[in-house]
Computed example of a mutant assay.
Amino acid sequence: MVLRAGLLGLGVMGSNHARVLASLQGVDFVGVYDPSPTVPERVHDRPVVRELDQLLELGIDYAVVAAPTTFHLEMGTRLAEAGIHALIEKPVASTAEDSRTLRDLFAAKGLIGGVGHIERYNPALQAARERIAQGMLGEIYQIATRRQGPFPGRIADVGVIKDLATHDIDLTAWVAQQDYVSVNARTAHRSGREHEDMVLAVGTLSGGTITSHVVNWLTPFKERVTIITGENGVLVADTLTADLTYYENGRIQVAWDPGEFRGVSEGNMTRFALDRKEPMLAEHEAFRDSVLAGEARGIVTFADGTRVVETAEQLALDGFTRRL
């Protein structure tokens, strides 16, 4: 069966989705909806229409929503009412309330809803999760992430928490296979924009793992690092290069007095060879297969995405400075 797919939004992310859709096996990419007069009339030899109804009239089984976050609820609702499955770029909606609305609507209509938390498909993080499940690290003590870089011109409707930190919220819970039970944060507004552009966050997961996240739009270089510390050593995932490195605790016996602090020593280091499939292609393949199967298979569901937005809102709520 060949699925017919449409795209809503042709910005930076939308252009990447269009590229993948145009060559995705088992999918007929039929067209794009974008009302902007600056976008071309055809993309990858597919028509660009200016009204959503025009795209729906082309007959589509599912749609990818890459429009600004403020339109996610409206567009997702239109698609659900038309019986169309949807892969929506993260965050799933602007607010937790809107996210829950979409989650419940798609569930009630028996439709597949996925969220574009693309980091789950990064080879380094997928390999890290697999090795954690195999027991390589033993008990997970801490997960620390750093996601820093210059301000992206594509973002105007949300702050750094919902744009970038949602990646770290999702990947941290997913890699550890634990839920957040508490979070605290501090935010800053340094660039004169309405929304926060820096956040430092800490949290605790359901299995006792503690987390920390450094996220901002004000660093003149890009950094995307996840450091997972366990009882046997540390996994370091660089998602810019899709590299995964294991730093093993030393096996040399160290004598200590019962009352002294017990630490670790430096051991072997291993850099793993990974199959580096493009994350966006893997994301699209998983969503296509879920639609064909009629059930979620390896995707970030609307339920997952809603929990991420709920956690992000708690960070934003907590992210103020108390004056002593």
Rank of each mutant, 00 (worst) to 15 (best):
residue 257 D to F: 11
residue 77 T to G: 09
residue 21 L to R: 05
residue 121 Y to P: 12
residue 146 R to T: 15
residue 116 G to R: 03
residue 129 R to V: 07
residue 177 Q to C: 04
residue 71 F to C: 10
residue 186 R to M: 10
residue 233 G to Q: 10
residue 258 P to T: 05
residue 111 L to E: 09
residue 123 P to G: 08
residue 309 V to I: 15
residue 259 G to N: 07
residue 24 L to N: 13
residue 163 D to F: 00
residue 275 D to E: 13
residue 72 H to Y: 09
residue 175 V to R: 03
residue 148 Q to C: 10
residue 111 L to C: 12
residue 84 I to R: 05
residue 244 L to S: 00
residue 114 G to I: 02
residue 322 R to V: 15
residue 145 T to I: 02
residue 51 E to W: 07
residue 70 T to Q: 13
residue 156 A to P: 03
residue 112 I to C: 02
residue 151 F to A: 12
residue 149 G to N: 09
residue 286 A to N: 07
residue 105 L to R: 11
residue 167 H to E: 08
residue 261 F to T: 13
residue 203 G to I: 09
residue 163 D to K: 00
residue 222 K to D: 13
residue 55 L to I: 11
residue 300 V to G: 02
residue 217 W to D: 10
residue 286 A to L: 06
residue 96 A to V: 00
residue 229 T to V: 15
residue 125 L to G: 03
residue 159 G to S: 06
residue 167 H to T: 10
residue 229 T to S: 15
residue 245 T to G: 04
residue 185 A to F: 00
residue 28 D to N: 15
residue 187 T to N: 08
residue 231 E to N: 10
residue 31 G to C: 12
residue 273 A to L: 11
residue 168 D to T: 05
residue 261 F to P: 14
residue 97 E to S: 12
residue 22 A to E: 01
residue 46 R to K: 14
residue 262 R to W: 07
residue 113 G to P: 06
residue 282 A to Q: 14
residue 181 V to D: 03
residue 54 Q to W: 05
residue 12 V to F: 12
residue 310 E to L: 00
residue 176 A to L: 01
residue 287 F to R: 01
residue 244 L to K: 00
residue 303 A to R: 08
residue 322 R to M: 12
residue 274 L to Y: 01
residue 99 S to C: 13
residue 153 G to I: 11
residue 144 A to F: 00
residue 98 D to A: 15
residue 145 T to K: 04
residue 130 E to R: 10
residue 172 T to E: 06
residue 21 L to G: 02
residue 234 V to N: 04
residue 110 G to T: 12
residue 155 I to D: 00
residue 214 V to Y: 13
residue 169 I to D: 00
residue 128 A to D: 03
residue 60 I to H: 06
residue 31 G to I: 09
residue 262 R to E: 12
residue 4 R to M: 06
residue 300 V to T: 14
residue 69 T to V: 15
residue 283 E to N: 07
residue 110 G to L: 09
residue 93 A to V: 01
residue 101 T to A: 15
residue 138 G to D: 06
residue 129 R to G: 03
residue 92 V to R: 00
residue 56 L to D: 10
residue 139 E to Q: 15
